[in-house]
């Protein structure tokens, strides 16, 4: 009797949690289902009608994916996204790791002031930098190049990366480095053999964060890569497709899912690090 009452009492709680989860999940499920349906079906009936005959697999096909990856140029955009995202993750984290280490464990004049400036730069809106940089980029032929966008993402990601890594390196015990120096280690050895291996979790969460940020970015790509189709990443291609094929849902849904596949994969396999990165950035201590 009492267990029945307990279950009944907790029923509203379960309904609320499951209801919210459904609301959060349904839009994405709709996208995924529609991306596998043939064009006529997508236009004639809602995607939820496939669940009338959930085992009838003849209502699904891969045509939409084949078309967006080849005819719509998403295959190339996918490679471009990869070309942009990997160096745009490695370069800022390498630079930030060296800088963070120097800020945490080396003495030099202006150390405090320079770091306070970095903290201030954390919130400068991207928009503030676009016009002057674009002018310089156009003058030196940097716009529409991979090097140009790698460095731009490096600049925008650097304040957060330096801030996070300096705080992490600073929390390592001092005796560790003193012992290493007594044993005759050079600063570079102390950094690469001691500080870096100890901060793998922090580096991983930072890397995942930057990876997802760059992969999902539209504004930076829009400004510095402009209309150059040869180097356009997925977000840029997808946004152009929305404008040109606004109602071709069978293609748009497949294209959107192609652009989401990598971040979702990263998300599901490395979720723990991802959450840790968010926590480290927003909650002190």
């Amino acid at each position: 009797m009492s267990t029945v009452r307990r279950v009944l009492e907790r029923l509203p709680l379960h309904l609320a949690v499951i209801g919210l989860c459904l609301i959060w999940l349904l839009p994405t499920v709709g996208l995924l289902v529609s991306s596998f349906r043939p064009k006529d079906a997508v236009f004639a009936t809602g995607w939820w009608t496939v669940f009338r005959f959930p085992l009838d697999f003849s209502q699904f096909r891969l045509d939409n994916y084949i078309q967006v990856l080849t005819a719509q140029g998403l295959g190339r955009a996918f490679l471009n996204s990869l070309t942009i995202v990997i160096p745009s993750t490695v370069i800022p984290i390498t630079i930030a790791a060296f800088a963070g280490y120097a800020f945490a464990w080396m003495n030099f004049p202006g150390r405090q002031v320079l770091f306070v400036i970095v903290v201030g730069l954390l919130v400068v809106p991207l928009q503030m930098t676009l016009i002057p940089l674009l002018r310089i980029y156009n003058r030196v032929g940097f716009s529409g190049t991979f090097l140009g966008i790698w460095l731009a993402h490096t600049g925008y990601g650097l304040p957060f990366a330096v801030y996070l890594l300096r705080n992490f390196f600073g929390s390592l015990p001092k005796d560790l480095f003193e012992a290493a120096y007594l044993d005759g280690a050079s600063p570079l050895t102390a950094f690469t053999r001691l500080a870096l291996p100890l901060s793998v979790p922090s580096l991983a969460s930072l890397a995942i964060f930057q990876f997802i940020w760059v992969w999902n970015d539209l504004l930076v790509a829009l400004i510095y890569l402009g209309g150059t189709e040869k180097v356009a990443p997925l977000t840029l291609r997808l946004s152009a497709m929305v404008q040109s094929l606004g109602q071709d849902w069978h293609l748009l849904t497949a294209a959107a899912f192609v652009s989401m596949a990598v971040p979702l994969l990263v998300f599901f396999t490395l979720q723990r690090y991802f959450v840790r990165g968010i926590l480290a950035g927003s909650v002190k201590g």
Binding site: F98, R111, V124, T129, L151
Partner: peptide, 27 residues
């Protein structure tokens, strides 16, 4: 010991200066 810190933070300062500080003032 006096030069090495600048070798480590130099690239970061250059990039921050070029991509954030200078454009902000210029805008």
């Amino acid at each position: 010991p006096r030069v090495r810190p600048w070798a480590y933070i130099g690239p970061a300062l250059l990039i921050l200066g070029f991509y954030l500080v200078y454009p902000t003032l210029n805008t």
